[in-house]
Design a protein around this nucleic acid. Structure first.
Length: 585
DNA sequence: GCCGTTTTCGGCCCGACTGTTTTCAGTCG
C-alpha cells in the first residue's frame, strides 16, 4: 500500500469518527497523521519494520504507528472496521455536499436510514427532512441544488483556469474607486496544481468599516455572478457559471496582513502558527496578532510583521503547508527559492513543423522577450502521426532550418538568444526510439517521451522507459511520470525507479511547466533532488504565449523547496547548459 | 491520539455566516 492510500484511509477514518461524534482532538490527530503521511517522500512500506523512523514523523505516535502497521499488513485497521460496522462508506460522499457536516449526516442516518446521495435526494423530495430539527425549506432547496452541482461537477479547477478567472474578477473589482489592492489568497496563492475555490482579498479606503457597504454592493452586483451565495459585512460569496466558487473579502488596511496570512493558509500551517502564538502569550486571528493579557495589537498590517513578531523569518506562500517551514523559519534556514528570473532557457517546444502554431523565429523572439538566453526547438517525431511528426529526413531538414534561423538571429541580435536543434522523440513498445541514432546524433537536445501509455501495466512502462534511457543520445526524459493533471491517468511508471536510473545515467528529468501536464508534483521533485537527479523545467509550448506557462512550473519548484542550483536551465548560457547535460557519445 | 524550553497529564486555533434557534448549533474556511 502506498502513502497516498494510507493517507486516504486515515482521513476517511477521521471523517467516520466525526460522524460518530468522537473526541474532536482525536479526530484532528487522524487528519494530521494523514497529512503527514501524504507529505513523506519515502514510501512507508519500505520502512515499516523500523518503528523509530515512523515515530520520527511529526504527528505519528504509538497509536498511529499501530494503525499504519495494520494498514500495511492487512489493508485495513481495527478502528476503521469497527466504524464501518456502524456506518456506511457512502456517507463520506454525503460530507462533500454543501451544508452537510458530520452531525447532519449522522442525523439523517439515525432518523431516516439515509446513507447515500440518492437516498438523501429522495428523502428531501419526499419532505422527510423538514420534519427533522434545524432543517427547513431553505435548507432543502440548498441541498437539492448542492446535489445537482455535485453530480454535474465535483472536481477542482486547474490553477491556470483559476488564475484567468481571478484576473478577470480582480479587474472588475479594482474599477471601484477606493480599492487599491486585491490579491488572490488560498491555494491559488500557495500555487497548488488545482484550486477548489477562489479567495480574493481587497483593501483600500473603500474597505474601511464605515464605508465598506457601498463596495460590498458593487461586488455583489458584478455581471459575471451566476448565483449569489452569501453577502456579509465584509464578505461576498458567489459562483460563476462554471460552478467555480469565489469569496471576496474587503478588509481595512490596518488588518490586511493578518487577513492575507489567514486566508492564504494552509489550514495546517495556520493551526501550527496559532499554537506558536499561544506559547508566546499571543493570539492570532484574521484581524490581528494580539497580546492575550491586554488585547494590545502586536502586528496586523503586513504578513512579514506577523511572522517576525512570532520570531520567524517571512515564509513564502508556496511553503505554507506545515511541512517543516516553521522550524526552518525559526532557525533562519529557509531555502532561497528559485524565481522565474533564475530560468535562462527553455528546452522543449514545438513549431508549425509539427503540432505547434508558430515559427522557429517567432518562438525564439518570444523567448527573448521573456528574458531567456537560449531555447531548444524539439518538434515531435514520426511515431506521433497525428501531430505530423517528423521522420528522419524531415527531422534533418528541420534542424538545418533551425541552424539557419539561429545564424540569422546571431547576426541580428548579437547572440542575445541561441536556438539549439532538438527533437522530442517517442519511446516505442520495446524501449527503442522511433528515429535513427544517426539522426539523433545531429541534435543538441534529445527529449525522449512516452506518449501512448494508456492502459499499459506500470511494470511494462517502467521497463520501457529504463531501456530508452540506455540510448546514449537521450539527454532529457520528457513526461517522466506520464501524468495529466485532472486527467484519468495516474502515473504510468514507477516514478522512484525511473528517477533513480535517470540520475545514475546522467539523463535530466523534465518538469513540464504546462499546468495540464505538470509531470512531476512537489513530492516527485523532492524525490528527484534526493536522488541527485539533474532537473530541467520546460514549457512544452505549442505557441509563443504558452512560454508564459513557465510561471506555473516555477511555483511547483518552489513548493518542493528547490533553489536555483537544483535546476539545470538556470545556467547562464547554452554552452554552460550543454556541459551539464549527459555528454554526447 | 499527540505532545512537552511551562507539562508524561492536561492541554490541544479562531471567527463569520446560516437557518431557524427565541439564544444557538452546525458548517465552513
Amino acid at each position: 500500500m502506498d502513502n497516498i492510500s494510507i493517507a486516504r484511509l486515515l482521513d476517511e477514518t477521521a471523517s467516520l469518527l466525526e460522524i460518530d461524534s468522537a473526541d474532536p482532538f482525536r479526530i484532528r490527530s487522524y487528519r494530521r497523521a494523514a497529512e503527514a503521511v501524504e507529505q513523506q517522500t519515502t514510501q512507508l512500506s519500505t520502512i515499516a519494520d523500523d518503528p523509530k523512523q515512523l515515530l520520527a514523523i511529526a504527528g505519528i505516535g504509538k497509536g498511529m504507528l499501530a494503525n499504519i502497521q495494520a494498514l500495511l499488513t492487512t489493508g485495513t485497521m481495527p478502528l476503521r472496521e469497527e466504524l464501518l460496522q456502524k456506518y456506511k462508506p457512502t456517507m463520506l460522499e454525503l460530507l462533500r455536499l454543501p451544508g452537510m457536516g458530520p452531525k447532519t449526516v449522522a442525523l439523517v442516518w439515525s432518523s431516516c436510514q439515509v446513507c447515500d446521495i440518492d437516498g438523501l435526494e429522495a428523502a428531501a423530495k419526499a419532505g422527510h427532512l423538514t420534519k427533522l430539527p434545524r432543517m427547513g425549506e431553505k435548507f432543502v432547496i440548498k441541498l437539492l441544488k448542492g446535489i445537482e452541482d455535485h453530480r454535474k461537477n465535483s472536481s477542482r479547477f486547474r490553477i491556470d483556469k483559476a488564475q484567468q478567472h481571478a484576473d478577470t474578477i480582480i479587474g472588475l473589482i479594482r474599477a471601484f474607486p477606493g480599492i487599491d489592492e486585491i490579491i488572490p489568497a488560498g491555494s491559488l496563492r500557495r500555487g497548488r496544481e488545482t484550486v477548489g475555490d477562489l479567495d480574493l482579498l481587497a483593501t483600500g479606503p473603500a474597505c474601511e468599516p464605515d464605508v465598506v457597504s457601498a463596495a460590498i454592493e458593487h461586488v455583489a452586483s458584478l455581471p459575471l455572478i451566476d448565483k449569489l451565495i452569501a453577502k456579509g459585512q465584509n464578505k461576498v460569496s458567489f459562483t460563476l457559471r462554471n460552478n467555480l466558487q469565489v469569496d471576496v473579502r474587503l478588509l481595512p488596511r490596518a488588518s490586511y496582513g493578518a487577513a492575507l496570512q489567514y486566508f492564504t493558509g494552509s489550514k495546517m500551517h495556520n493551526v501550527a502558527l496559532r499554537q506558536r502564538a499561544i506559547k508566546r502569550g499571543l493570539t492570532l486571528s484574521e484581524y490581528a496578532l494580539l497580546r492575550l493579557e491586554d488585547n494590545v495589537i502586536v502586528a496586523a498590517a503586513s504578513e512579514a510583521d506577523i511572522y517576525n513578531a512570532l520570531d520567524l523569518d517571512y515564509i513564502p506562500p508556496e511553503l505554507r503547508e506545515n511541512g517543516g517551514e516553521l522550524e526552518a523559519a525559526a532557525t533562519h534556514t529557509l531555502p532561497q527559492l528559485i524565481t522565474r528570473a533564475d530560468i535562462r532557457g527553455d528546452l522543449h517546444m514545438h513549431t508549425e513543423a509539427t503540432d505547434g502554431r508558430d515559427t522557429i523565429r517567432q518562438m525564439a523572439e518570444a523567448a527573448l522577450a521573456r528574458g531567456l538566453s537560449y531555447i531548444a526547438i524539439t518538434d515531435h517525431s514520426k511515431n506521433l502521426a497525428m501531430t505530423n511528426g517528423l521522420d528522419d529526413a524531415r527531422a534533418l531538414a528541420h534542424i538545418k532550418r533551425i541552424r539557419e534561423v539561429d545564424a540569422e538571429l546571431q547576426q541580428e541580435l548579437k547572440g542575445k538568444i541561441r536556438i539549439l536543434p532538438g527533437i522530442e522523440v517517442d519511446i516505442l513498445a520495446d524501449g527503442a526510439l522511433d528515429l535513427d541514432d544517426s539522426t539523433l546524433a545531429q541534435m543538441d537536445i534529445v527529449v525522449a517521451s512516452v506518449h501512448s501509455h494508456f492502459n499499459q501495466p506500470t511494470e511494462e512502462m517502467t521497463a520501457r522507459v529504463l531501456r530508452a534511457l540506455e540510448n546514449p543520445h537521450v539527454r532529457i526524459l520528457g513526461h517522466p511520470t506520464g501524468r495529466k493533471v485532472l486527467g484519468r491517468e495516474p502515473y504510468a511508471v514507477n516514478v522512484d525507479t525511473v528517477l533513480r536510473q535517470a540520475a545514475k545515467l546522467g539523463v535530466a528529468v523534465e518538469h513540464n511547466a504546462s499546468p495540464a501536464r505538470a509531470d512531476l508534483n512537489d513530492l516527485h521533485l523532492r524525490l528527484a533532488k534526493q536522488h541527485r537527479c539533474k532537473i530541467v523545467i520546460n514549457t512544452d509550448a505549442h505557441a509563443t504565449e504558452e512560454l508564459d506557462q513557465m510561471r506555473y512550473g516555477i511555483t511547483q519548484l518552489r513548493r518542493a523547496w528547490l533553489t536555483p542550483t537544483d535546476i539545470l536551465n538556470t545556467q547562464p548560457t547554452a554552452e554552460a547548459l550543454l556541459k551539464n547535460l549527459r555528454p554526447k557519445p
